[in-house]
Simulated scan of single mutants.
Amino acid sequence: MTTPMIDNFIRPPRGLTETVADLIRIGGVLSFFVALAFFELTEAAVIAFTLPGMLIARFLGMTPIPDAILTTSLIIAAWSNVFELYTSIAWWDMVIHFICAGGLAVAAYVYLARIGAVPPPGTHRVAAIALTTSLGLSLGVLWEVVEWVGFTYVTSQIYVTYEDTISDLVVGGLGALVCGVAVAHVPLVREEQVPASPQLECLSTSP
């Protein structure tokens, strides 16, 4: 017997938008092998680090548009490192942190909703905004730790400064806040994918 998340992953795409989202995901996975063949190993490793994020929306049964946005943003984030856009374009790093932190916070919220730990997306507005913002900030801290480890033990080419770290956390938190508004108002998963949690039913009727 397969689990619901495995069922989501192996389920064939339905409709054009789901097919497009899957094609974007396949392109992201293939881009790892392109990087492995034509670029440095450390650059391929950066892309490999984003692969779980490219797959998570499929496992969670997210609707195709949020799926495609999350996957595309991670592909762009990874290849921006390969082409050194973070150092050549002053504001590019903040744009990527804003989008990726928000998208990953949404995915984290959807996962927690699937296991009944938080209200389903599109129900309890206050909880959705507060929790998504908190998740984005937490993921931002984890990302900065990974950057520091990479800079300290892998390669000094990773750009790490105090100002960069603080600005990344602030911008990522703002991105998560904006995406929290989307979680509060927009159903982000197929209706059959997030069963209502008995412990949280009383919250779903709150404004």
Rank of each mutant, 00 (worst) to 15 (best):
75 I>E: 07
51 L>H: 03
74 L>I: 01
70 L>G: 05
13 P>G: 10
23 L>C: 11
75 I>M: 15
68 A>C: 02
53 G>T: 02
79 W>C: 06
39 F>R: 14
24 I>Y: 00
37 A>N: 08
29 V>D: 02
69 I>T: 12
31 S>T: 11
54 M>W: 00
8 N>A: 11
26 I>N: 02
44 A>Q: 01
34 V>D: 05
22 D>I: 02
36 L>Q: 12
55 L>G: 02
79 W>K: 04
49 F>E: 09
70 L>E: 05
77 A>Y: 07
9 F>Q: 09
33 F>Y: 12
39 F>V: 12
18 E>P: 04
72 T>K: 01
28 G>S: 06
28 G>K: 02
35 A>R: 03
72 T>W: 00
46 V>H: 06
54 M>S: 01
41 L>N: 06
32 F>H: 10
67 D>C: 06
75 I>C: 08
70 L>I: 15
25 R>C: 15
72 T>V: 09
25 R>A: 15
25 R>T: 15
56 I>W: 10
39 F>C: 05
45 A>R: 02
14 R>Y: 04
19 T>L: 10
37 A>L: 14
59 F>H: 05
56 I>A: 12
55 L>Y: 05
64 P>W: 02
13 P>T: 13
17 T>F: 15
76 I>Q: 04
16 L>Y: 15
72 T>Q: 04
71 T>N: 11
60 L>S: 07
54 M>K: 01
10 I>G: 03
43 E>I: 05
